[in-house]
Nucleic acid binder design. Sequence first.
DNA 1: ACGCAGACTTGGAATAATATTA
DNA 2: TAATATTATTCCAAGTCTGCGT
Length: 452
Amino acid sequence: MALREMGLMEINWSKGCRAKLPLSRVRFTHHLDHPMVLWQVTNTSRALVDQFTRKSKSLYTFLILCCRVGNFRVEPPALFRGRGEHPKMGKLKKRIWPSDITINIGKGAPIPECPIPGQRWKEIRHDNTVTWLAFWNDPINPKEFKYVFLAASSSLKGQSDKEKYEKARLLKDYIQGIRAAYTKDFASKDVTKRQIAVATYLIDKLALRAGNEKDDDEADTVGCCTLKVENVEPLPPNILKFDFLGKDSIRYQNEVEVEPPVFKAIQQFRTGKSGGDDLFDELDTSKLNAHLKELMPGLTAKVFRTYNASITLDEMLSRETKGGDVAEKVVVYQHANKEGILNGLKTDLARSKKGKPPLKGADGKPRKNLNPDALERKIVQTTAKVEKMERDKETKEDLKTVALGTSKINYLDPRITVAWCKRHEVPIEKIFNKSLLAKFTWAMDIDPSFRF
DNA sequence: ACGCAGACTTGGAATAATATTA
DNA sequence: TAATATTATTCCAAGTCTGCGT
């Protein structure tokens, strides 16, 4: 790939050039094993780089990674909100000072001046095995870290995004075997094996998250491995009724028909336990992922979400695109996208649009008292709004009520979309907005025949 | 095996920008 | 032209997963 496409530019770092660079915008680093200058790109700076590139005659000494930084501001002091019933809600999030911040720059690079007189950085590191530019401890939970990373549009992020989708594509070659294996293990004599099999099935079929252990000072939410007995109710003959708070304290409620052996296994995992006990008492995410890794190199629980969302989009697009003009094809895409979400990630992406996480305060304090008139008006207004939404939902087949963006960003291989656009002569700008286009630069030159 | 530090992705809510309607 | 609706962007919380020391 050409340097330029990777967001890289080689420049001559001779004396003449040095004076012209807006040094206030320049950060030195050494990612990608090159001595390199990190540069927040603006039109002016891009023009300058072009100028240097043209003029330079002697040997290059530096690479400029011409890309944006993601979050370059520390979070200001505030009251911590948290989501759901968070034990630390309302805690003061204190100010971050330079003396809290560790920065990561190239060896021998000039240390950026500390913006507050009389203070200094906590630490200067020279670690080119990581991608962060700076970090500090989270003032709410000092055991955790906040980082400054590159923006999603950077080549570094693009590369790992691509790797993520390549891994999901690899799962295609293994999925049949994996499904056959776990189906067989539903009835295994070994409890651990049986639990692994059922958990993998739920992750695959329902797109549940892995479910790491959580501390007591975090909101009480669960994922697959941390499901409790009370979260999964077996309704004979073979329905499982799920009800739990997942990521971001979003409620997951779903009744699904499952294979009889799965139903039987769940019943058996529940026996002799009380509601608050772990359903999968033999399991945690590291055991589960260790097992998945034996089935496919690099396989972990989250890969299933990516795989299932992307494969669904790919299949739907190829099945449903017949003819029609660009506008009609865009509708086909939106529809496929929506179905993809509903089939694969219905669990929370779509659901989250409707219900709110329970935020009930301890005292259920009512909001500011409105006078009855205002209240009345508000109710009428809201009711009208709801009615309008109902109508829209029907007439537009619910297309607009599902946010298509979210899954596009994280779960759907952009090459599926780009290739489909090329095959059907739909301008990619009809599908991706500006930041998605920037984020998915790496996918734009894909062959039209690409299939996930 | 296990716990924990560390680094990275995911995702909803708030806010800002832009388009549409009255 | 102002009010309102829609879409894009920012913010930062909350997950996943790895690797390391014991």
